[in-house]
């Protein structure tokens, strides 16, 4: 955690002293770290380490007890969720949460909500400007589907797709918010090896677009492959932030978490 101060200029997201308690359980205990612009940060740690809680606090779903969150140079810790999305933070969910009964295209269009200007009255009056905006939105949604490889599924009901496609659809929906930062909560959970590889490739392509990513991942292979840095959480504390190589060589991390898991895997 030493390099952070030097690269201050390049940090898209900076978390300082984040603390959150649920009853007697400390879900986050004075967690501080930074995410560099255009990088991929992996978040690992045993179950209950506070990974999802951290995501929830960055997106604003739950409010921290203490601490600061700086995003793109602005303090966002007291912003409501929709303002944070407008500021450029998007996310996917641990359990797929696509909108039931909606097509893939419609799901992506909902993702564009914050980027479309027309409101309630616009819907009623339906001026040429609104119609045009809607047309452009559809075109852009189709582009995103093409980018994620879902174009041929555009008109299928999203929840009827196989799990792998559903996970991709969630990522497409998050991309539709036109984000600077995407938080992926266990994107590879439930995927087979081929799907996981495709996911890794998609993450790299998103990164090439200049979008910063954070992901919670249990698939160590994927995490090692796509992440520039890895943050290790254990019982609400950040115990290490380093490159994947350094993490695998760090005895403390191995003892705390990876050792056990690797043994299980092998």
């Amino acid at each position: 955690m030493h390099g952070i101060r030097k690269e201050h200029e390049n940090l898209l997201l900076q978390v300082k002293g984040l603390t959150k308690q649920f009853g007697g359980v400390k879900a986050q205990d004075n967690v501080s770290f930074g995410v560099e612009q255009g990088s991929v940060l992996g978040l690992i740690g045993p179950n209950g380490a506070g990974k999802t809680t951290l995501f929830n606090m960055i997106t604003g779903v739950c409010v921290q007890d203490k601490g600061e969150i700086l995003f793109n140079g602005h303090a966002i810790e007291s912003m409501p969720v929709h303002k944070r999305v407008a500021a450029g933070i998007a996310r996917t969910f641990q359990n797929v949460e696509l909108f039931p009964g909606m097509t893939v295209l419609e799901n992506v269009l909902v993702g564009m909500h914050v980027r479309l200007k027309s409101g309630f009255w616009g819907a009623i009056i339906r001026s040429p400007r609104v119609v045009k905006e809607e047309r452009i939105a559809r075109e852009k949604a189709l582009e995103i589907l093409e980018f994620t490889g879902l174009l041929s599924y555009a008109d299928r009901i999203a929840c009827d797709l196989p799990v792998g496609r559903q996970k991709t659809a969630e990522i497409a929906r998050a991309l539709a918010t036109d984000p600077l930062l995407i938080l992926l909560d266990e994107p590879a959970a439930g995927l087979n090896r081929i799907e996981t590889q495709a996911l890794g490739a998609l993450i790299c392509r998103i990164k090439e677009q200049g979008i910063t990513l954070m992901l919670v991942e249990h698939d160590m292979g994927l995490a090692m492959e796509v992440c520039d840095k890895i943050l290790v959480l254990d019982r609400g504390e950040a115990i290490a932030l380093a490159t994947p190589q350094q993490i695998t060589n760090d005895q403390k991390v191995m003892d705390a978490y990876l050792g056990e898991e690797f043994q299980c895997l092998n």
Partner: peptide, 16 residues
């Protein structure tokens, strides 16, 4: 419709 289907997902996508 998004709120009706999954409110927390809709909120996370910036729907107020």
């Amino acid at each position: 419709a998004a709120i009706h289907g999954r409110e927390n997902a809709a909120v996370a996508l910036g729907v107020d």
